[in-house]
Design a protein around this nucleic acid. Structure first.
Length: 348
DNA sequence: AAGTTCTTATTAC
DNA sequence: CTAACGGTAATAAGAACTT
């Protein structure tokens, strides 16, 4: 197993930075991109906030109502996804030239495997600088680059260097550099897993070095397959590969109602639209199943699915099948409905 | 009892 | 009466259903 050099690139506060560029009059002010804090009685969350807004405690996924309370004077802008997608394409055009394999994580994030191209971390750092320069020249946007011996370490390096930074973590530094970091630094360890680990350790604010004391068998016992993964990641080991283009395994769409409802008219009207949108997005792909999602007023969420032989089913077929599943939720509960969703699964 | 399929939980961006 | 949480997708585990 030969050593690798992996680069992670992340655009800085991407959506908000684009808005700053497009609306220079807002520069220096707190900017929040996301749902309208007034419309729909404030359902929805923050998509991206610039650093000024973050200083008020606003971050991605903050409920928009709360963001408004924290900083009413902020500039609240709607998500202009079509435009961000265009900018993203332009960024990826630059990035894709820098490595054979580029794994796109999202509109604003990617991993590059530089193992073939670069024989040293110094060389990789040069590539990182080039990328930063070229993106800034073309798009007037800053990004941060992290470089490490695997995907996880590249991402951690990136996190440490934000914003507008570049950082290399050499293999010799890997183990030490993460030992004082909190558990959620490890990709895959979120709030629930962190809580479970801390409970086992009987320790609050546990750090990576604390969790290293847990035996591999115990982690597997607690978290199954992921436990083995965690054991290695806690020690800076991540053998996952930089993947090229990946095909979607499913496409779907959800809708949250402005007000919770049980009105079948309203519900079915929205559902009709969701099915149409999903159907068009799934285009020529064969379809092998569908899932209907229903979230009630109390946030309890249920799904119903149906599967069939992969084939080119008509929109009407999917719609009818979907509605019949959807209506069961109305029958089975008296609660109001907050959200409905429709998703189709595609063959490998 | 094994092999699918369905449902929920968790994570990430 | 005091404003709690989008949308999209992947993955894993366990339950439920088939054969």
């Amino acid at each position: 197993m030969k050593k690798r050099i992996i680069l992670h690139i992340d655009m800085d506060y991407f959506f908000a930075q684009i808005e700053e560029r497009e609306n220079p009059q807002f520069k220096g002010k707190p900017i929040v991109v996301g749902a309208d804090p007034r419309g729909g009685k404030g359902r929805g969350v923050v998509s991206t906030a610039n650093y000024e807004a973050r200083s008020f405690g606003i971050k991605s996924a903050t409920p928009i109502s709360r963001a408004f309370r924290l900083c009413p004077q902020a500039v609240f802008l709607p998500v202009n996804m079509d435009f961000y997608e265009k900018v993203s394409l332009s960024v990826f055009k630059i990035v894709s030239k820098k490595a054979k394999k580029v794994e796109k994580v999202s509109l604003d994030e990617a991993y590059l495997d530089l193992s073939d191209k670069c024989r040293s971390y110094k060389e990789a750092e040069k590539v990182g600088e080039e990328i930063k320069k070229e993106i800034y020249k073309k798009e007037r946007l800053t990004c941060t680059v992290g470089i490490g011996e695997n995907k996880m370490m590249a991402k951690i390096a990136c996190e440490l260097a934000k914003p507008d930074g570049l950082k290399v973590i050499k293999p010799s530094q890997t183990k030490k550099i993460i030992e004082e970091m909190p558990l959620e630094t490890i990709p895959g360890i979120g709030p629930k897993t962190k809580e479970a680990i801390q409970k086992y350790l009987k320790k609050k604010n546990a750090k990576i070095k604390d969790a290293r004391k847990i035996k591999k068998e115990k982690l597997i016992d607690l978290f199954g397959k992921r436990g083995d993964d965690f054991y290695h990641k806690l020690r800076g080991v991540d053998n996952s590969l930089v993947e090229g283009e990946r095909k979607a395994k499913s496409v779907g769409k959800e809708h949250t109602f402005q007000k919770d409802t049980r009105d079948p008219e309203k519900i079915i009207k929205v559902f009709r639209r969701l099915v149409g949108d999903v159907y068009r997005q799934a285009k020529e792909e064969k379809i092998k199943g569908l899932v209907v999602v229903c979230r009630f007023e109390d946030f309890e969420t249920h799904t119903k699915q149906a599967s069939f032989e992969p084939g080119n089913y008509k929109e009407d077929f999917l719609y009818k099948k979907g509605v019949s599943l959807l209506l069961r939720f109305l029958t089975r509960s008296n609660k109001k409905i907050r959200l409905i969703g429709f998703r189709v699964s595609l063959p490998e």
